[in-house]
Every structure is written in C-alpha cells, then in structure tokens.
C-alpha cells in the first residue's frame, strides 16, 4: 500500500511529537527528515525537497502561515498542517494560504497516516492523470460525466456533478466551504453556505448516502467537506 523510500519532512518544535511521528512513519517505510524550527524546515525543503511536509502551526521562530506562503512561493509540494483544537479559523486560514490538509492535535497515528496517504496518492496521480476515479462503492468518470454507485448509474444535476468532481479530485483532501462555493457557484458566492448545505443534502440523497452515517461525503464541522476514502 505504501511506496517505500518516499521522504517526509516534519517541522515541529516538540521533540516528543517528532519522535513518535518519526518512529511510526519509519515503521511504515517512509524516510523521515526532521526540523525543529521553521527556517530550518524551509532550508531543508530547498536542499533536499521531500515528498510531503508535516507542519506544526505553532513554531517558535516563524508563523505557520508565513511558512506556508514562503514555501508556496516556489513549491507545490503537499503540506499537512498540525493544528490545535477549537480553532477552525486557523485551520481555514492555513488551508487558504495553501496547506493541503490538516490534523487536529492531539491526534492518533491512524488519522495522521490516513491524511498522509491521501496527499501522497494525490501527488502520485498528478504524475499519471486519468479522468477515472474509483472508490469502494463509487465510480466517477469526469470526462464522460458518469457516476455509478454500487454499479448502478446515478444521474446528477450540473451543480451536483461539479461538487462531486471537486470532492473526487480532492481524493479525501478537505475542501473548505469557501473554495467549493467559489468553484461551483463562482466568485461572489463565498458566503452562501446555505446553497452548499442544500446541494450536499441533495447529492447525498442521490448517492444513497445516509447523512447520519455517510459513506462518501464527510462533513468537517466549521471547515468544509471531504470525500471518505
């Protein structure tokens, strides 16, 4: 499942967190680089670019947002943010600044691994693009605009399909409300969350997704949506 020898950089000032993440990642076959400070992390990204950066937002020397913006100035490599609870705003800011996803501290290693796999798989896909996406129970063909749930075709409206395409292309990466609204409805609709809630309700209904136990579309309260993978 994992592709060994992929290199991950963890930028985190807490030695204990660095340690358990490194041990777990190495056990999964990844190579791990460590940086205690933001500047150090940016330098490592330049010197030996990793496949993914795990970034703690509370660094002693550099604001997490600055780190993301400076890295994004020249690189598209995936960034997974570690953020504290109860700060949806901070998460959304980080995502808007260019982070790809986040994990809330304290986190279990399983959650971190899942997020890392999603981001790496997405990177891999960028190398060999294909309009076909297949997940357990769901198949989406972006080119032909075809959707199948458990083998049966489902007909979607234009906006429902646009929303599903976004989620599918994200492959499990979280998408903020604002981004979905901008891409499905266009600029100027970023505040119209109620459109989005209604559309998600309709899409779930058509996909046969129980909102209480969603199989496909997960709600990330206060932040956005992601596809369950």
């Amino acid at each position: 499942m994992t592709t060994p020898a992929e290199t991950l950089l963890i930028v985190e000032d807490e030695a204990q967190i660095r340690k358990f993440v490194r041990i777990s990642l190495e056990a999964q076959g990844y190579q791990v680089l460590e940086a205690r400070l933001g500047e150090e992390g940016l330098a490592t990204c330049l010197a030996s670019p990793p496949h993914l950066v795990i970034l703690d937002l509370g660094l002693p020397d550099l604001d997490g947002m600055d780190f993301i913006r400076r890295l994004r100035a020249w690189s598209t490599l995936p960034i997974l943010v570690l953020s504290v609870r109860a700060s949806e705003t901070e998460k959304i800011q980080a995502l808007d600044a260019g982070a790809n996803d986040y994990v809330t501290k304290p986190f279990g290693i399983g959650e971190l691994m899942a997020r890392i796999r999603v981001l790496l798989r997405k990177e891999e896909r960028r190398a060999t693009p294909s309009p076909q996406f297949t997940f357990p129970g769901l198949r989406v063909d972006l080119a032909r605009r075809e959707v199948e749930v458990d083998g049966s075709p489902v007909s979607l409206s234009r906006k429902e399909f646009a929303l599903l395409s976004l989620l599918v292309a994200g492959q499990g990466q979280v998408l903020t409300h604002e981004r979905i609204l901008r891409e499905v409805w266009g600029a100027g609709h970023q505040e119209d969350t109620h459109y989005l809630r209604v559309l998600v309700g309709n899409l779930r209904q058509k996909l046969g997704d129980d909102p209480m136990r969603p199989r496909f579309i997960l709600t990330v309260q206060g932040v956005g949506y992601r596809l369950a993978v």
Binding site: T89, H177, P211, M212, T219, Q221
Partner: peptide, 15 residues
C-alpha cells in the same frame, strides 16, 4: 460565528 448548518451533520459529528 454563525453559519448555515445541517442538524444531521451536527448529530452525526457528535455521535
């Protein structure tokens, strides 16, 4: 900070 929210999402999240 209010926003439009689906109650089912809230209950699902809590569960």
């Amino acid at each position: 900070q209010r926003d439009w929210v689906d109650l089912r999402d809230l209950i699902a999240g809590a569960l």
